[in-house]
Simulated assay, not measured.
Amino acid sequence: MSAQTNVPFLMSRAGAVSALTLAAMGGSLLVPGGTPEAQAASSHAGKALEVAASKKGSPYRYGGTGPSRFDCSGLTLYSYKKAGKKLPRTAQQQYNRTKRVSASGRKAGDLVFFHSGGYVYHVGIYAGKGKIWHSPKRGSWVKLDKIWSKNVRYGRVG
């Protein structure tokens, strides 16, 4: 097995393969919604993506920052906090804090900012293949969705 090989696996409570063991074997971690061709921007980004995916089905709550209810920026804040990185509270503040990335340079774990004019109104975590993990709106829940707008910008958490 070469160091370039991607090894998808499912983690179970009975016996999870640790990320360190997987790395030692030359593999990489794939999270639900992730893709081999969209490798994570960093280990923090990969962990944040894994955390966001683990919150699938958690209900939306305006102002919610977890651990069981989230709004959009609350999910990104929570996911990156669990990955060891601090983000500000709102989508606009998170946009202001991240490094701009082109659409062609985006990687799994980067933040996807939806905007209208100069105002950022929504954020999610890029999962690859044009999809994001996000907590979209009242009456909804954390889920994986296709990016529905061309009015997006990408940011990398440093």
Rank of each mutant, 00 (worst) to 15 (best):
Q4A: 15
V7R: 05
V7M: 12
V7G: 14
V7T: 14
F9R: 11
L10F: 12
L10Q: 11
M11G: 12
M11C: 15
S12F: 06
S12T: 05
G15I: 11
G15Q: 10
V17A: 09
V17S: 12
S18M: 08
S18P: 15
S18V: 06
L20Y: 09
L22E: 03
L22M: 14
M25P: 09
L30V: 01
V31T: 14
P32E: 15
P32C: 14
T35I: 05
A38V: 02
Q39N: 10
A41K: 12
S42P: 05
H44M: 10
A52W: 00
R61K: 11
G63Q: 13
G66N: 04
S68T: 15
C72K: 03
S73C: 08
L75W: 00
T76L: 01
Y78F: 03
Y78Q: 06
Y80R: 00
K82C: 10
P88G: 13
P88E: 11
R89M: 08
T90W: 01
A91H: 06
A91W: 03
Q93P: 10
Q93W: 04
Y95T: 09
N96R: 02
R97S: 08
K99H: 14
R100P: 07
A103T: 07
S104R: 01
S104D: 11
G105R: 09
R106H: 12
R106E: 05
A108R: 04
A108M: 15
G109I: 05
G109S: 02
D110K: 01
F113G: 07
F114H: 09
H115E: 09
G117W: 03
G118Y: 04
Y119G: 12
Y121T: 08
Y121K: 03
V123T: 08
G124N: 04
G124S: 05
Y126F: 04
K131D: 01
I132N: 00
H134P: 03
P136L: 01
G139C: 13
W141Y: 11
K143G: 15
K143F: 09
K146Y: 00
I147V: 07
I147H: 01
K150I: 07
K150P: 01
K150V: 05
R153Y: 07
G158F: 09
G158R: 11
